[in-house]
Amino acid sequence: MKNAVPTLIAMLALAGGTFLLRLAGPALRARVTFPERAEKLLEASAIVLLAALTATAALTEGHGFAGLARPIGVAVGGVLAWRKAPFLLVVLAAAGTAALLRLAGVR
């Protein structure tokens, strides 16, 4: 590995920084009590973040479109989850659909 020491230091910095980011929320909440409405807003913000994360992970790669196979796979999983299918089926169907589409030449 080239530049092993700077890379290792960078990794430790990322680990430390990430921990501080994780700590920021709970540390703030320990000092400030939020009214009930703000609590609802904070939980909503987590859902909004997770929804955006799902969409970007499913549809994009870098700055562009991820291709059809992955989003179709995720959509199949989503429909199954919506129809209350078991979680195992949801996950396997998503991966299986994307894999089969790629096998068939859909990118």
Partner: peptide, 26 residues
């Protein structure tokens, strides 16, 4: 990617947030 593993993570999160998305404004 040939195994479709990249579709797993988004599908997992989607399945878990779906119940919360029943609420209209959310």
């Amino acid at each position: 990617d040939a195994l479709g593993l990249d579709a797993m993570f988004p599908a997992v999160i989607l399945a878990l947030i779906l119940p919360a998305l029943k609420q209209r404004e959310l």
